[in-house]
Design a protein around this nucleic acid. Structure first.
Lengths: 212, 212, 212, 212
DNA sequence: GATGAATGAGGTTTCATTCAT
DNA sequence: CATGAATGAAACCTCATTCAT
């Protein structure tokens, strides 16, 4: 068992990380509320209860804060996909689990979902196109473990001539779409019954509309 | 038969509309290239080969230009969906046709697709959330004619407890996702074989992954 | 008696003057409504029912329109003062008449009064100070005929060491102040009883508060 | 006796106020020189020796700067009127003192006088007319203490059927007119002998031209 | 003479980032 | 490390004036 020694240095480190997290949480809230370009560092700082300048001791720029939020999110979702694939014995089970867990995750992190829905593709980078490609690459990563387990079950066959990973990506995009829809719809996302929804789209994906 | 008289007034009107279109086209290009916030009126004007002030004789603001582009696009897609539903004899045919035509439309209007993929949710409105709801409502409109024909075929039954229009929306979102994917992928959107792609997702939607 | 010949040229001339007047009237209205800087040529033109460019066939600039209005006004008031002095047999009568007629004039030309009250000193000239002096010189001109008749009655004596024309100017400024006050006050200027008001300030001027 | 502790916070506060004042002074100068619409923030900032953006850390807009200047001025003049009324034993003495002190005040604050003379009525508000009424209400406030002491002396009688406060306002307007006149006249306002001028108009006001 | 589209200089305002305290 | 005042580049938009038709 690892022996943790609380040297002053370690405390410093921990406090630093805690404050970094506070800033990220504050920023997440403000981005979700105002949208990236309308969000000002002034307001983020006020929400985090720091002075504007302090933010720059933790992040190099507004952009970096935003990218960190998105990266964290994608990591989380990637983890969900990994776990779903690893701990399931069939593709159907894995996909169902991925959908359910993702729904739950976003229900618990509504703000982050808001940001991703609106801002994911709006990073203010020199080369927007490069960024878009990057995002889609991450989506492929997320779909990969799901594709992998599906692959096995289909014994290497393609679906309608398409490689399996593209098909898995479709599923991922459907999940995302349902989340976003709920977020901006009359019914609160909190009322979303994760398991019901997950079953629906898994059923559609595996059996199609006509074969229920 | 109506005798068209080209009065000066009519000519003025026509020229005005033509120039409005030129501006919209130029703006579409710049928005697609730079993204909405980095797109400057300076550049839009230069691209349209007008002076900055001239733009304001045709549109009240940068925002208005953007909304016009989006509105036009949604109208076009809505029209595609309507036509597909009206001129098909089965749901499967209608969905296939909608997918094919939408693919073709975006292949011919790559810039517009770029804008929508990135900017649709970023209209700079006071109340971003209200706007999001509006966008989703438009999506429902687009899905409506497809839902309608599907409804008939399913004889009023629901799918896994979900109303048919939500299911139709899923299809629409899949189509959009495939378009965006192609746009930012290594393979140019021009190489996309609309018919092949459309067949794939229609097959998936109606029969599922397991029943090909 | 002058024989007026209505040659085509004269008609042109008359029509031109009439249109000039229409523009001045429209401009007077818009200036009064919006204030000089918020007034746009667009709106002046629309009010006059001409196109924007047409205005420039009659006036060299927005500024010139404004100066013409002010000049016309000052000429009118100067005429009132002249007449009052010429047709009165005593200073008291002359001042009373000047006040009464000026009140009547502004009641009939409310818009012009509004402009003068707000804009007189705001001509957008290179040298504002020179302009201010010019305005005050005009005020002296207006006061002059009144000063003249007062002078006679006072047999060359000064009032409290001040030259008579400065005293007359005070009276003129009091009249103007009462007009402006009424214009922006709850009671409409239309309800102003010119004769009553005029008697009050004339009484004050000649006999003072204590000697009624 | 209070022990003043100069905490950093207090120092910050003081410096902030000092800089606010510097900006107001610079703006006053530029407004007086150029007039409100020709005054640019560029020049105000340069005069105050700050960057343009810095101004906006102290005031929300050009308009707000202007209104602060005017409000401060009106407060000062109101204070003069209050003091004059409170510390005088007769109306004549109060009016004389008000006139003298106002002359002195404007001689020491020439720039502010310039602004008020030209700009008072040009505040760029939606509803200019509402603003004009507001200004006239302030004038009434200023006249109020003077009216009050005059009232007592006249034992409730009206003058020529007019309420006493309207009469007091006339006096205030005469004072203002003499100030403006001097400002834009050949003789510098610095040469104005406050006491002489004040005596003249007080004499006129109380005894009239004919009874010296 | 009348029209109205085109012009473009110039203004106000925002806000991410820096840096002295 | 924390602070918040200072910065200044950029952006959007207005509108008087010109000029080809």
């Amino acid at each position: 068992m690892t022996q943790v020694i609380h040297t002053p240095l370690a405390r410093r480190q921990r406090e630093r990380l805690a404050r970094r997290r506070e800033i990220l949480d504050a920023a997440t809230h403000v981005f979700a509320e105002r949208g990236y370009p309308r969000a000002t560092l002034e307001e983020i700082a006020a929400t985090a209860e720091f002075a504007k300048g302090t933010i720059y001791n933790y992040f190099r720029s507004k952009e970096e804060i935003f990218r960190q939020i998105v990266t964290d999110l994608l990591d989380d979702v990637l983890h969900i996909a990994d776990t779903a694939a690893k701990e399931s014995s069939s593709a159907r089970e894995a996909f169902l689990r991925y959908a359910t867990d993702t729904f739950d995750y976003f229900r618990a992190n509504e703000d982050v979902l808001g940001i991703v829905s609106r801002e994911l593709f709006r990073l203010e980078l020199e080369d927007t196109k490069r960024r878009m490609a990057e995002i889609h690459r991450r989506a492929e990563q997320i779909a990969a473990p799901l594709a992998c387990i599906l692959q096995k079950e289909m014994r290497g066959k393609r679906f309608a001539g398409q490689p399996v990973d593209e098909i898995a990506e479709l599923f991922v995009s459907i999940v995302h779409h349902r989340c976003a829809k709920r977020l901006f719809h009359k019914k609160s996302i909190r009322e979303l019954n994760s398991h019901e929804e997950a079953k629906t789209i898994t059923l559609l994906f595996f059996d199609g509309v006509l074969h229920q």
